[in-house]
Nucleic acid binder design. Structure first.
Lengths: 221, 221, 221, 221
DNA sequence: GATGAATGAGCCTTCATTCAT
DNA sequence: GATGAATGAAGGCTCATTCAT
């Protein structure tokens, strides 16, 4: 009796906390051992919960992984879209996108690790017998499509070289992964700003058309 | 009794044939479904052998996978080293390396697919609790180190930009993967030559110092 | 402090109410899904109580089921014994027993359903490794023994055929179940009186000795 | 090489043997403890096989149970239909059906026990939330429908009382179960012939119209 | 006393590996 | 030496029961 509203809120709050605990634990475990080698028991232990409690917030291992991808992916995508809105030219959008992307992964190194374990399978269309595979990487695919769209605009604006936008987008994402993997391998000592600076330089070399100015101006923040 | 030499030779010949059958089958299976989802039974069936025979030539699933990586990796590495010897300058070595690399994967699309499923985990040093992981990518690591060494020479020769050779090598390999993945996704219609041409262009933009000549000459074959 | 007597009474009253809520809910759940498929959580929810409260009045699922059987069984048995006292002849007792039996189940269709799910396992003596099974059907066994005793008297009185009273009792109970199952299957539209009439007819054909009178008189109520 | 035909035959033979071992073991286990309480491990142990081997011939516990019901049920149904064809009148069909039925269960006491654990749930139409339940008792339902059809003919022939054939069929089957349960409870000492004789007597009392002759002649075998 | 979240033992099922034929 | 049937350890998931609040 009394305040069912407050009760439901409390319940929801606890569920949210658990979801977070589980997601964070799963992120660490998946980062460490990969999806298959990670046991539900491991995740529960890492989260400091019992198996039953874990199943109280996620219906299964697959769904837990999907939720993780979904959540982090949605966050990253959201930030990227925000960044998009703030910028004037497609090139600036791309450069600012890089900053957002790098800052996100520097803030979530386990999610980064977890994704470095997988190649660009997400870029390969729905494979014959594993459409669920693609489902799990929906966020990656969306991000890729967003990037491709912006590349298309940047090509039209004459700011980047005229090649298949999809190929350019994939190349850029792979480039990010390389720099971020290198960052991890070298002990995560570089600051996000330094990483961004480095990737921006790489970006200019690889994608930009060079019309006089040796480097594009840094976009407004 | 009789001729033990001949007997041993025959035995060896059979073992070699079996190894080949199994490796090829495993390549197809791993390409199709990934390591975890591939069952030993599947590989044996694909190879047209019994599981017992498979275990006669490989002691386990893990080792089979490692052997596959090892073999194809060694072949690729060998070809790359050959290419190295034929060329005068480090830049030419790199450009010719790309050709060799691309031609190799165009000839072995299943091995390519199989590796596109994995990220650049191979580049990350021996992780805390999965040194076996790194073991499996020994060939990749060797290839990467060879590339890094050549990049170092090319930097000294002033032919490519002066950045961390390791980072450059990783970037180049990732770049290859992107182009090859794109090639697969688009139905494997491009010829190896066209792919090489495209990657060469990308290479020049990303890595080369530009001293007057807009494009390096194509190295002699 | 103050009035421990009144306190204990209040406590007892609450316990009784809870027992009732739980028993009724369990009856519906067991009727709907059977013993194994019914979850304690389901019963608690159906009763509008927490699982903790449920465990406050019953020590376990098994015991809850047993208590249900015990209670309804005791009620039925009590009514049957009452009916016994009112009648002059064994045959009248049996006929009146049928009425009581049918009226009871028509009033408790969930308890009926729940029991139609189980066969006459209760009639089979204590099986080797499942004496607990028999325990759960103690009430059925008692009812069966009462019926058998009356059949014995009826045989001695020459009112029913001379066969093993135990077999006759089992037959009669099974007969009831068939008619009641049929009643449920056909939408529970028949009145209790109609069902009783139908079963009485069946009873006469199957058990009664026929000494001139085509039908026994309806026993006084 | 050599004789693939013979190989396949041998394989089939072994599968058949295993199916039999498993079905028999499952029958004993289900008879002893019921479906839910029986563990796959138990059945495998009872069959003298490993769990893996069991799963080699049956895809799951549910399916194993269904196959058991299906097989024994089909056998019983087949024999009943055979018996049908040999007899002249509907009444004779019913009487001979009883013999077949009893002889079958006397030959398969574990299957009998297993089914005595379940009530006449099979007779209750497709329950709201457990259509799979009904599926498992398809054989029972078919047998019941066959019996009901013959009762209809017997009614038209004036050989049995004019009541709902479905109710009569259910009653008869329940009657069988009672007599067989009694037979088991009393140590399975009676011969099949004695049981049949007893049930025939019961049948006449309960179902037959009595036109002069005190007992129907025993049908030709 | 009431609650219902937390627990974890236990079950079904899979599949890498072995070994009798 | 070849086979593939047999094995059983291990993992995902459920749910009866407990206990902190």
């Amino acid at each position: 009796m009394a305040r069912p509203r407050a009760l439901a809120a409390a319940r929801q709050a606890r569920t949210d906390i658990y979801r977070r605990l589980v997601l964070d634990a799963a992120e660490r475990c998946f980062a460490r051992s990969g999806f298959e080698a990670t046991k539900i028991q491991d995740i529960a232990a890492e989260a400091g919960l019992s198996v039953g409690s874990l199943y109280g917030v996620f219906p299964g291992k697959r769904e837990l992984h999907a939720a993780l991808q979904e959540e982090r992916g949605a966050e990253l995508l959201g930030r990227a879209q925000e960044a998009t809105a703030r910028q004037a030219s497609p090139l600036d959008v791309l450069l600012e996108g890089i900053r957002v992307y790098v800052e996100f992964f520097v803030a979530h190194p386990d999610y980064l690790r977890m994704n470095l374990r997988h190649g660009i399978a997400w870029a390969l269309g729905p494979s014959r017998e594993a459409s669920e595979q693609t489902e799990q990487y929906a966020a990656w695919r969306q991000g890729f499509e967003l990037a491709a769209a912006i590349f298309r605009q940047a090509i039209e604006a004459g700011q980047v070289i005229d090649e298949d936008p999809a190929l350019l987008a994939k190349t850029m994402i792979a480039m990010h992964q390389v720099h971020l993997a290198d960052w991890i391998e070298n002990g995560m000592t570089l600051s996000a700003a330094e990483l961004v600076e480095r990737i921006h330089r790489h970006f200019h070399r690889t994608f930009a058309t060079h019309r006089g100015e040796p480097h594009a101006r840094v976009p407004t923040r």
